[in-house]
Write a protein that binds this DNA or RNA. Structure first.
Lengths: 236, 236
DNA sequence: CGCGAACTTGAGGCGTGTCAACCCCTGTGG
DNA sequence: CCACAGGGGTTGACACGCCTCAAGTTCGCG
């Protein structure tokens, strides 16, 4: 695997590298590629941390669990997203990373990343940006969970997903969900029935079509207005 | 200001440094000290990012806002905590950092931190740990907001605060809240009335005493059991 | 000492959860 | 080609926890 020829590089750690920097990264950064079958874990909470994993293909969820069995989905990761950052702090992972479809990830040893980063400032800077963006994204999740109603949470979730698909060159307004209603519900702090009902309501309001996991956002502006607290415009 | 003689160093960026590393950090890391009066902002969402700020004295909250005026408290920061990491990703801060009491922070230029970090691996590693721990803490917040009932959210919040006070050498079970009911509510995704009622209920259940902002946790084990889903033991 | 902000408490409404039934896809095997 | 099984999704009725609105109290600060 060579980072220099990877189409995901602009959104990955070796973004902005050129020339000899890129050569070194090609040679030393990614030690291997790892396949994870649908339903399998890339790592589990409690596992020893030693690597971070940019997603190359496929789709993941990360899940935290409490001792009494409750679970919370903390994120969904797709091509270009970085998994494993939760482990740096304590040396142990504290979420499960589970593939929602057959997936492949690059394996980047954290020790190697530290060494390479010391002699390649843009690489380090990109790592910091990535961690910072995850913090900001988590703040967005807190806003969703703490201050929004079910309809707003789902709308925000869909627009965020749409935006992420778009930056990866995929269709922004017509896509297939990789996760179940229950997983969406866990991420949004809702029960699966509420997610289902809310999808139906958004469809009844003419904002989107939903059929099982196929989504088509027919009125993205209307969805955005819902988030801005504006009433949806009538037809007459 | 010299990091080497700061009592908060073990929980700050220059933790684990020794000898010449510490000398360099003393000379170059902290460019100045900044005072922030109660109610004033250290930085605002939209401000240009150029520094991170370890809290030296005082107490802060960070707040994200939406265009329609809703706010969400994303965290409370006290001595040793690091403010400003949200800005690295985009070069702009995306939360407001507001002092809840007169406070002092160290100013660490991000550019200087990057340069110093390159020649001082333990410093860089500590930065990474700090960011990772913030990510993990945010996942904890998501779990609270997404999967817990009001009573559990408040119990978890109080135990977390208790633990943080304890690591700073303060009393774990008797302390004064620096934030209002409304701010706690925002952080926990509850209305201030619900926070107030829940405090009263925990007191009625014999787990703590509360009087305005003075808190005394009289039965920390009971509070922990509440989080573990165990019923509180009866008296007979 | 007095004002205003913060906190507490109550009554009633609403949104989401709970429980249950049914439907729709998909895959399997006869 | 169809029958069947099973998981995921949808929908309904009802319950409950939290929110809303309102009144009254306490505390902190000028």
């Amino acid at each position: 695997m060579r980072c220099s020829s990877c189409h995901l590089r602009p959104s990955c750690l070796p973004a902005h590298l050129v020339g000899s920097e890129l050569d070194r990264v090609d040679a030393l950064l990614v030690t291997s590629l790892r396949r994870v079958a649908r339903g399998e874990t890339l790592f589990r909470a409690g596992d020893r941390f030693d690597s971070v994993y940019p997603v190359w293909t496929g789709f993941f969820k990360t899940v935290v669990a409490t001792r009494q069995g409750t679970e919370q989905v903390t994120g969904f990761q797709m091509g270009g997203d970085l998994l494993g950052l939760d482990g740096i702090g304590t040396g142990l992972h504290c979420v499960d990373a589970i593939a929602l479809e057959d997936a492949q990830v690059c394996v980047i040893g954290y020790a190697a990343l530290e060494v390479l980063g010391r002699e390649t400032p843009p690489l380090l800077r990109q790592l910091h940006r990535t961690m910072s963006r995850e913090i900001v994204a988590d703040h967005g999740a807190m806003l969703r969970l703490g201050s929004m109603r079910a309809e707003e949470r789902l709308a925000e979730f869909l627009l965020g997903l749409s935006r992420r698909l778009q930056t990866r060159g995929l269709s922004a307004y017509s896509f297939v969900l990789r996760m179940s209603r229950e997983e969406i519900g866990s991420y949004l702090g809702l029960k699966l029935e509420t997610v289902s009902r809310t999808f139906s309501k958004l469809q009844a309001d003419g904002l989107l079509f939903v059929s099982q996991r196929k989504i088509q956002i027919t009125d993205p502006v209307g969805v955005q207005h819902l988030l801005d607290g504006l009433a949806v415009q009538g037809e007459g």
